[in-house]
Amino acid sequence: MEHTKHLWRALGILVVVAVSGVVIRHFAIPDSFGEAGSYRYDALAEIASKPVVHGNDISCRECHADMAETKAAGKHAPVRCEVCHAPVTTHARDG
């Protein structure tokens, strides 16, 4: 076809842009994306690795067995130690 040179050039530019877009996108996709669905599978482990703050009464009993017995006999038996006292990690960190 004669007189369509400009259209072919425009189309060429379009193809170049589209191909480079696809290539760039390919490298921009994060690792583990799409392994188990449309999300980054590594995120699961990241969320799971957030620091634990609270323990439970068993953690407290490790050191304060006597207090645990007193509490168990009293009216606060169902209330967890950490509800009124500090969470075990902050407590242990402070010494």
Partner: peptide, 16 residues
């Protein structure tokens, strides 16, 4: 996660 576990299991003492 094990890094965290070390953090929360202070010393030899098992808190959790």
């Amino acid at each position: 996660a094990s890094g965290v576990a070390v953090l929360v299991v202070a010393g030899e003492k098992v808190f959790f």
